[in-house]
Design a protein around this nucleic acid. Sequence first.
DNA 1: GCTTGACCTGTTATGATATTACATTCATAG
DNA 2: CTATGAATGTAATATCATAACAGGTCAAGC
Lengths: 173, 173
Amino acid sequence: MAPLHEHSDCPGCAAPDLAFATHDHAHCAADALSRAEVVTSAAGARLTPVRRRVLEILLEEHWALGAYDVLARLATEGFGNQPPVAYRALEFLVEQGLAHRIQRLNAFTACTHPGEAHAPAFLICRSCSAVAEAVAGPVRAALDEAAAQVGFSIERSTIEALGLCPACREATA
Amino acid sequence: MAPLHEHSDCPGCAAPDLAFATHDHAHCAADALSRAEVVTSAAGARLTPVRRRVLEILLEEHWALGAYDVLARLATEGFGNQPPVAYRALEFLVEQGLAHRIQRLNAFTACTHPGEAHAPAFLICRSCSAVAEAVAGPVRAALDEAAAQVGFSIERSTIEALGLCPACREATA
DNA sequence: GCTTGACCTGTTATGATATTACATTCATAG
DNA sequence: CTATGAATGTAATATCATAACAGGTCAAGC
Ligand SMILES: [Zn+2]
Ligand SMILES: [Zn+2]
Ligand SMILES: [Zn+2]
Ligand SMILES: [Zn+2]
């Protein structure tokens, strides 16, 4: 399947540090949403109103939202106001690879490059709360190697780093 | 400072896959406890009865215990039975590097090589629940490299993998 | 030996996160 | 249409974590 548009046309769109760089975020979010349509229909899944709305909410900013934050937004918009409403939609998005759970924050963030297979690593700024998906290939390879040495087979991995993003680092210095 | 004993004398004592291998666990636990005494006194901290007991409880098995599991044990032994009792002791042990928090499990596990500086990676068996500390140097290096590429400075990292340990993998096959 | 102050422990109360169970609605295939 | 499975809504509850304060322990300094 062809990409939805030429990424060479939108510098930064596929950059690994997208969340930390100034960029055309309206485009970034719209693109993620279109990709989500493709991904879900290709999987025979349904991007229903709640699910779509939750994804839109996550896509508003490059940071992570707690399930109850999402729920509060949904509730004011006429959707259900009980926890399972948010948790179920979030679980769906995670399963489809459209969102990720950040374990350290007990929160969720929209995937910045859905549709592309990836075992992500996250960089979390403790100052501005931005969350970026880093290039995780080499990290994951090193982890696989360490696991293989002791005969352990990895099925899922959690790789998260807390620290300062370039902008906040600059501001602090 | 000299090590408490010669590790060359106890094969497996410092092995990275300690938790997945059959080993002299009584020795393993006793060793960790002695090291804990050294580490805390060197830091000018006090390994009080509750703290020591919590560490002993964590050292009983190579898996992770929730704060409330630890609390239940403490309560039957005459210590306080309210959550802060367990959380405070666990927090102390984590600060001293004597225990680690496993984010995926909301649980805690005793450190298998306290006193040695290390940014750990954990291998968690989804079948038998064993938790091992893997050799994390190369993984951490790859993560640092990925972060550096986008100007992010890492302060703390969480590296955890879920999968099957050698024994459970064998059993399943 | 007393006082003082830092640290540790215990307890109450509450907050934050997550799931189970069941009723209802909706989309779609036959 | 109607049967079927998927999705949603809701109530109730389970699980994980912290704030705030009171009392106790202990060692340094007078
Ligand atoms: Zn963006
Ligand atoms: Zn920042
Ligand atoms: Zn052991
Ligand atoms: Zn196992």
